[in-house]
Computed example of a mutant assay.
Amino acid sequence: MEIRHSSHPADVKQYDTAKLRQHFLIEGLFRDDKITTVYTHEDRVIIGGAIPLNKTLTLETEAALKTEYFIERREAGFMNIGGEATIEVDGERYELGKLDTLYVGKGARQIKLSSREAGNPAKIYFVSSLAHAVYPTRKVSVREANTMNLGSIETSNERTIHQIIHENGVQSCQLMMGVTLFKPGSVWNTMPAHLHDRRMEAYLYFDMKPDTRVFHFMGQPEETRHLVIANEQGVISPSWSIHSGAGTGSYAFIWAMAGENYTFKDMDVVGMDELK
Protein backbone atom coordinates (compact mmCIF):
# COMPACT_ATOMS: atom_id res chain seq x y z
CA MET A 1 0.00 0.00 0.00
CA GLU A 2 1.35 3.39 -1.01
CA ILE A 3 0.62 6.28 1.36
CA ARG A 4 -0.15 9.77 0.05
CA HIS A 5 -0.33 12.67 2.49
CA SER A 6 -2.54 15.72 2.13
CA SER A 7 -1.20 18.87 0.49
CA HIS A 8 -1.97 22.50 1.23
CA PRO A 9 -3.03 24.60 -1.80
CA ALA A 10 -0.45 27.26 -0.95
CA ASP A 11 2.28 24.61 -1.19
CA VAL A 12 0.95 23.10 -4.41
CA LYS A 13 1.41 26.47 -6.14
CA GLN A 14 5.15 25.79 -5.93
CA TYR A 15 5.07 22.22 -7.32
CA ASP A 16 6.76 21.43 -10.61
CA THR A 17 5.42 18.76 -12.97
CA ALA A 18 7.27 15.90 -11.30
CA LYS A 19 6.00 16.83 -7.85
CA LEU A 20 2.41 17.27 -9.06
CA ARG A 21 2.51 13.78 -10.55
CA GLN A 22 4.11 12.34 -7.42
CA HIS A 23 1.33 13.66 -5.16
CA PHE A 24 -1.80 13.41 -7.30
CA LEU A 25 -1.31 10.98 -10.22
CA ILE A 26 -1.84 7.24 -9.68
CA GLU A 27 0.01 4.93 -12.07
CA GLY A 28 0.37 1.15 -12.24
CA LEU A 29 -2.94 0.24 -10.61
CA PHE A 30 -3.58 -2.78 -12.82
CA ARG A 31 -0.96 -5.51 -12.55
CA ASP A 32 -1.31 -9.20 -13.33
CA ASP A 33 -2.21 -11.31 -10.27
CA LYS A 34 -1.71 -8.42 -7.88
CA ILE A 35 -3.87 -6.02 -5.88
CA THR A 36 -2.41 -2.50 -5.84
CA THR A 37 -3.64 0.11 -3.36
CA VAL A 38 -3.03 3.79 -2.67
CA TYR A 39 -4.09 5.29 0.67
CA THR A 40 -4.68 9.03 0.50
CA HIS A 41 -5.11 11.14 3.61
CA GLU A 42 -7.70 13.13 1.64
CA ASP A 43 -10.72 11.85 3.61
CA ARG A 44 -8.72 8.63 4.20
CA VAL A 45 -9.83 7.08 0.94
CA ILE A 46 -8.18 3.97 -0.51
CA ILE A 47 -7.97 3.57 -4.30
CA GLY A 48 -7.13 0.17 -5.74
CA GLY A 49 -6.92 -1.99 -8.82
CA ALA A 50 -6.33 -5.62 -9.71
CA ILE A 51 -6.06 -8.04 -12.63
CA PRO A 52 -6.80 -11.55 -11.30
CA LEU A 53 -5.20 -13.33 -14.24
CA ASN A 54 -4.12 -16.82 -13.20
CA LYS A 55 -5.31 -16.98 -9.61
CA THR A 56 -7.90 -15.73 -7.16
CA LEU A 57 -6.78 -12.64 -5.25
CA THR A 58 -7.78 -11.99 -1.65
CA LEU A 59 -8.08 -8.42 -0.43
CA GLU A 60 -5.95 -8.53 2.70
CA THR A 61 -5.71 -5.88 5.39
CA GLU A 62 -2.64 -3.66 5.50
CA ALA A 63 -0.46 -2.75 8.47
CA ALA A 64 -1.35 0.92 7.99
CA LEU A 65 -5.04 0.18 8.60
CA LYS A 66 -4.50 -1.34 12.05
CA THR A 67 -7.52 -3.62 11.53
CA GLU A 68 -8.12 -7.36 11.47
CA TYR A 69 -9.56 -7.26 7.95
CA PHE A 70 -9.67 -4.72 5.13
CA ILE A 71 -13.13 -3.21 5.51
CA GLU A 72 -13.63 -3.77 9.21
CA ARG A 73 -14.23 0.00 9.52
CA ARG A 74 -14.79 0.76 5.86
CA GLU A 75 -17.07 0.31 2.86
CA ALA A 76 -16.00 -0.19 -0.75
CA GLY A 77 -17.23 0.03 -4.33
CA PHE A 78 -15.80 -2.34 -6.97
CA MET A 79 -16.28 -1.66 -10.69
CA ASN A 80 -15.15 -4.02 -13.43
CA ILE A 81 -13.67 -2.43 -16.58
CA GLY A 82 -12.37 -5.65 -18.17
CA GLY A 83 -13.53 -9.18 -18.92
CA GLU A 84 -16.04 -11.11 -16.80
CA ALA A 85 -15.22 -10.93 -13.09
CA THR A 86 -16.27 -12.83 -9.99
CA ILE A 87 -16.16 -11.22 -6.57
CA GLU A 88 -16.79 -13.41 -3.56
CA VAL A 89 -17.84 -11.68 -0.33
CA ASP A 90 -17.90 -13.91 2.75
CA GLY A 91 -18.70 -16.93 0.59
CA GLU A 92 -21.35 -15.30 -1.64
CA ARG A 93 -20.39 -14.95 -5.31
CA TYR A 94 -21.25 -12.01 -7.55
CA GLU A 95 -20.66 -12.05 -11.32
CA LEU A 96 -19.69 -8.69 -12.84
CA GLY A 97 -19.65 -7.82 -16.53
CA LYS A 98 -18.00 -4.70 -17.84
CA LEU A 99 -19.12 -1.59 -15.91
CA ASP A 100 -21.02 -3.66 -13.35
CA THR A 101 -20.47 -2.44 -9.79
CA LEU A 102 -20.48 -4.21 -6.44
CA TYR A 103 -20.98 -2.23 -3.24
CA VAL A 104 -19.61 -4.03 -0.18
CA GLY A 105 -20.76 -2.78 3.20
CA LYS A 106 -18.76 -2.31 6.37
CA GLY A 107 -17.77 -5.50 8.16
CA ALA A 108 -17.34 -7.98 5.29
CA ARG A 109 -14.46 -10.14 6.43
CA GLN A 110 -13.28 -11.82 3.22
CA ILE A 111 -13.27 -10.45 -0.33
CA LYS A 112 -11.89 -12.53 -3.21
CA LEU A 113 -11.39 -11.38 -6.81
CA SER A 114 -11.15 -13.66 -9.85
CA SER A 115 -11.65 -13.72 -13.63
CA ARG A 116 -13.97 -15.98 -15.58
CA GLU A 117 -11.37 -16.40 -18.37
CA ALA A 118 -7.62 -15.88 -18.19
CA GLY A 119 -7.66 -15.01 -21.90
CA ASN A 120 -9.96 -12.06 -21.19
CA PRO A 121 -9.20 -11.15 -17.58
CA ALA A 122 -11.20 -8.85 -15.36
CA LYS A 123 -9.83 -5.44 -14.43
CA ILE A 124 -11.31 -4.50 -11.10
CA TYR A 125 -11.10 -0.94 -9.83
CA PHE A 126 -12.20 -0.11 -6.31
CA VAL A 127 -12.53 2.80 -3.93
CA SER A 128 -12.94 2.44 -0.17
CA SER A 129 -13.93 5.07 2.38
CA LEU A 130 -14.45 5.10 6.12
CA ALA A 131 -17.89 3.97 7.31
CA HIS A 132 -19.73 4.28 10.61
CA ALA A 133 -22.86 2.35 9.57
CA VAL A 134 -23.56 -0.95 7.83
CA TYR A 135 -25.35 -1.10 4.48
CA PRO A 136 -26.05 -4.33 2.58
CA THR A 137 -23.73 -5.61 -0.11
CA ARG A 138 -25.36 -5.14 -3.51
CA LYS A 139 -24.51 -5.62 -7.17
CA VAL A 140 -25.82 -3.21 -9.80
CA SER A 141 -25.27 -2.91 -13.55
CA VAL A 142 -24.67 0.38 -15.33
CA ARG A 143 -28.12 -0.05 -16.95
CA GLU A 144 -29.72 0.16 -13.50
CA ALA A 145 -27.91 3.35 -12.54
CA ASN A 146 -29.52 6.73 -12.01
CA THR A 147 -28.69 8.34 -15.37
CA MET A 148 -28.21 12.02 -16.24
CA ASN A 149 -27.53 13.41 -19.73
CA LEU A 150 -25.55 16.64 -19.62
CA GLY A 151 -23.72 19.02 -21.96
CA SER A 152 -24.00 19.40 -25.71
CA ILE A 153 -22.03 18.71 -28.86
CA GLU A 154 -21.70 22.49 -29.34
CA THR A 155 -19.65 22.71 -26.15
CA SER A 156 -17.83 19.40 -26.78
CA ASN A 157 -19.10 17.88 -23.53
CA GLU A 158 -22.20 15.82 -24.37
CA ARG A 159 -22.02 13.03 -21.84
CA THR A 160 -24.00 10.53 -19.80
CA ILE A 161 -23.41 10.33 -16.06
CA HIS A 162 -24.33 7.01 -14.46
CA GLN A 163 -24.75 7.48 -10.70
CA ILE A 164 -24.42 4.04 -9.08
CA ILE A 165 -23.45 4.28 -5.41
CA HIS A 166 -25.48 7.33 -4.62
CA GLU A 167 -28.37 8.76 -2.60
CA ASN A 168 -30.73 7.81 -5.45
CA GLY A 169 -29.13 4.41 -6.07
CA VAL A 170 -27.12 1.94 -4.01
CA GLN A 171 -27.11 3.24 -0.45
CA SER A 172 -23.85 3.71 1.44
CA CYS A 173 -22.49 5.45 4.47
CA GLN A 174 -20.49 8.17 2.68
CA LEU A 175 -19.08 6.70 -0.54
CA MET A 176 -20.44 7.87 -3.91
CA MET A 177 -19.35 6.28 -7.18
CA GLY A 178 -20.32 6.24 -10.85
CA VAL A 179 -19.07 6.37 -14.41
CA THR A 180 -19.25 9.00 -17.14
CA LEU A 181 -19.45 8.06 -20.83
CA PHE A 182 -19.17 10.47 -23.76
CA LYS A 183 -21.00 10.96 -27.03
CA PRO A 184 -18.76 10.83 -30.15
CA GLY A 185 -16.88 14.08 -30.65
CA SER A 186 -17.16 15.26 -27.05
CA VAL A 187 -13.93 15.55 -25.07
CA TRP A 188 -14.56 17.81 -22.04
CA ASN A 189 -15.61 16.45 -18.66
CA THR A 190 -16.97 18.42 -15.72
CA MET A 191 -16.80 21.79 -17.44
CA PRO A 192 -17.78 24.36 -16.21
CA ALA A 193 -15.64 23.27 -13.29
CA HIS A 194 -16.77 23.13 -9.68
CA LEU A 195 -15.57 22.64 -6.11
CA HIS A 196 -17.04 20.70 -3.18
CA ASP A 197 -15.22 21.76 -0.07
CA ARG A 198 -16.52 18.97 2.17
CA ARG A 199 -15.48 15.95 0.10
CA MET A 200 -12.56 14.72 -2.00
CA GLU A 201 -12.89 13.03 -5.39
CA ALA A 202 -10.89 10.44 -7.33
CA TYR A 203 -10.98 9.80 -11.07
CA LEU A 204 -9.91 6.78 -13.10
CA TYR A 205 -9.54 7.41 -16.82
CA PHE A 206 -9.96 4.32 -19.02
CA ASP A 207 -11.02 2.96 -22.44
CA MET A 208 -8.34 5.10 -24.07
CA LYS A 209 -6.18 4.21 -27.07
CA PRO A 210 -2.43 3.95 -26.40
CA ASP A 211 -1.66 7.34 -27.94
CA THR A 212 -4.61 9.17 -26.36
CA ARG A 213 -4.07 11.46 -23.39
CA VAL A 214 -6.33 13.40 -21.07
CA PHE A 215 -5.22 16.82 -19.91
CA HIS A 216 -6.63 16.86 -16.38
CA PHE A 217 -6.98 20.30 -14.82
CA MET A 218 -6.64 20.75 -11.07
CA GLY A 219 -5.77 23.36 -8.47
CA GLN A 220 -7.60 26.39 -7.12
CA PRO A 221 -9.68 28.23 -9.75
CA GLU A 222 -7.32 31.20 -9.73
CA GLU A 223 -4.20 29.01 -9.77
CA THR A 224 -4.82 26.01 -12.03
CA ARG A 225 -2.36 23.25 -12.91
CA HIS A 226 -2.64 20.22 -15.15
CA LEU A 227 -1.61 16.57 -15.35
CA VAL A 228 -1.20 14.59 -18.58
CA ILE A 229 -2.88 11.24 -17.99
CA ALA A 230 -2.72 7.97 -19.97
CA ASN A 231 -5.09 5.01 -20.07
CA GLU A 232 -6.03 3.39 -16.73
CA GLN A 233 -4.35 6.05 -14.65
CA GLY A 234 -6.05 7.79 -11.74
CA VAL A 235 -5.94 11.18 -10.10
CA ILE A 236 -6.59 12.32 -6.53
CA SER A 237 -8.53 15.56 -6.24
CA PRO A 238 -8.43 17.35 -2.86
CA SER A 239 -11.53 19.21 -1.69
CA TRP A 240 -9.99 22.58 -2.58
CA SER A 241 -9.22 21.61 -6.18
CA ILE A 242 -11.22 21.75 -9.39
CA HIS A 243 -11.29 18.47 -11.36
CA SER A 244 -11.88 18.64 -15.07
CA GLY A 245 -10.25 17.29 -18.18
CA ALA A 246 -10.17 17.20 -21.96
CA GLY A 247 -9.04 14.25 -24.07
CA THR A 248 -7.12 14.07 -27.32
CA GLY A 249 -9.42 11.15 -28.21
CA SER A 250 -12.29 9.14 -26.76
CA TYR A 251 -12.21 8.03 -23.12
CA ALA A 252 -14.41 7.27 -20.13
CA PHE A 253 -13.88 7.87 -16.43
CA ILE A 254 -15.00 6.51 -13.09
CA TRP A 255 -15.58 9.08 -10.38
CA ALA A 256 -15.78 8.42 -6.66
CA MET A 257 -16.30 10.79 -3.76
CA ALA A 258 -16.18 10.61 0.02
CA GLY A 259 -16.32 13.13 2.80
CA GLU A 260 -18.70 14.94 5.07
CA ASN A 261 -21.73 15.41 2.80
CA TYR A 262 -23.75 12.96 0.73
CA THR A 263 -25.52 15.11 -1.84
CA PHE A 264 -24.35 15.06 -5.46
CA LYS A 265 -25.56 18.61 -6.15
CA ASP A 266 -23.78 20.12 -3.16
CA MET A 267 -21.12 21.93 -5.15
CA ASP A 268 -19.89 25.42 -5.93
CA VAL A 269 -19.79 26.04 -9.67
CA VAL A 270 -16.76 27.97 -10.90
CA GLY A 271 -17.52 30.50 -13.62
CA MET A 272 -15.36 30.52 -16.72
CA ASP A 273 -14.28 34.08 -15.87
CA GLU A 274 -12.86 32.82 -12.55
CA LEU A 275 -10.46 30.28 -14.09
CA LYS A 276 -6.84 31.28 -14.49
Rank of each mutant, 00 (worst) to 15 (best):
R4V: 07
H5K: 15
H5M: 12
S6I: 11
H8S: 10
P9T: 09
P9G: 11
V12Q: 12
K13S: 11
K13L: 13
D16F: 08
K19W: 09
K19R: 12
L25F: 04
L25E: 09
L25G: 06
L25Q: 13
I26T: 04
F30G: 06
F30Y: 10
D33Q: 01
I35T: 06
T36Q: 07
H41P: 03
H41Y: 07
D43I: 00
G49Y: 11
I51D: 01
L57Y: 03
T58Y: 09
A64I: 15
K66H: 14
Y69S: 01
Y69M: 07
E75M: 01
N80I: 01
T86A: 08
Y94M: 01
E95D: 04
L96M: 14
L96E: 09
D100G: 14
T101W: 14
G105Q: 13
G107M: 04
A108P: 08
Q110E: 15
I111Q: 01
A122E: 11
I124G: 10
V127L: 12
A131E: 04
V134L: 11
P136H: 13
R138L: 15
R143A: 15
R143H: 14
A145W: 00
M148A: 13
N149C: 09
T155M: 11
S156H: 12
T160H: 09
I161F: 00
N168S: 07
G169Y: 00
V170N: 11
Q171K: 15
L175R: 02
V179D: 02
P184K: 09
P184Q: 02
W188V: 04
N189C: 07
N189R: 00
L195A: 03
H196Q: 00
R198C: 05
R199Q: 01
M200L: 08
F206R: 02
K209Y: 08
R213H: 13
H216I: 11
M218K: 15
E223L: 12
H226V: 08
V228N: 07
N231I: 04
Q233K: 10
G245S: 08
G245W: 09
G247M: 02
G249L: 01
S250Y: 01
F253T: 04
F253K: 06
A258S: 15
A258L: 12
D268E: 11
L275M: 15
K276R: 14
K276T: 13
